[in-house]
Amino acid sequence: MVRFIAVRLARALLTIAVVVTFAFVVLRVSGDPARALLSPETPAEAVEAFRKAWGLDAPLWVQYARYLFAVVHGDLGQSMRDGRSAIAVVAERIPVTLMLTAPALILNLLIGIPAGIYAALKRDSIADRLVMMVAVVGFTVPSFVLGLVFVLAFAVELPWFPSGGAGGWQHLVLPVITLGLGGAAVLARFSRSAMLEVLGQPYIRAASAKGVPWPRVVTGHALPNAAIAVLTIVGFMVGNLIAGTVLVESVFSWPGIGSLLVVSVVSRDLAVIQCIMLVVAAAMITTNVTIDLLYGMLDPRLRDLRSGRR
């Protein structure tokens, strides 16, 4: 078990190192930030002064070393737009985004998993077909289209909820449902196929054959085994949720990380984008490590696997 955890943590650290380097390479090698940020008419001395101020005049490897040193010390530079520290700018948005993503994830799980399991148990019934049809529609309709449909229906035609912005709980309803439904569709499809896979296994037939009542077979044998497969996709879902948040926050002008990212990309605010990428990477890695550890708890067979390639 110790070895299992150690391997997982080592891989997580490696991924962080890759993300940090990736951020540096993409952000620094791709072009001259001074040129990108300042208008073409800026006098040459001012450009030079800007470069000096941000350390852009040093050789690339020196910049990389400085950058690594700063990142390790928790210094991600200042926002080039308002001069505040990038971490502070990003940190104040994190709880705002979590207010959307946390309920959305719960909604995903609450709708997606039961729907998928029900469809699998009633395989090829009308209910199964209906659930799967809704699920296919749910994950092929882009989240921004779904969001705009909701705005048109429940904010414009029927003025029940505000069309955007942050405020009371009413502001949360439409964006959370938009984010929740897309993910639920993916989860429902996946839970169904995971469950069907398990139901086809010999041990299910064996349990039925020795006279275990069907409900007991489902709860005692099928569900625990399907849960392991479903857990795999939760990490992927969190990634989807983060990407979806960028779009949905934009539709509903929700002042979270997603909106900040879009604004920062438009204004080419290096430090803030870097910081957001690290936050996203950290969130993804935390999720994946947690899932890996949960695997170990749920399924003793996996504890002994060396690197656990799925």
């Binding site: 891989r11 890759v18 952000l27 990634g239 879009v262 920062s264 990309v265 080419r268 984008i273």
Partner: peptide, 19 residues
């Protein structure tokens, strides 16, 4: 693993901003 662990939209936005 790296590609699968990061939401691609976020990576793409970062790249687009600077290239």
């Amino acid at each position: 693993d790296f590609q699968a662990s990061m939401p691609f939209l976020v990576l793409a936005l970062a790249v687009l901003a600077f290239f």
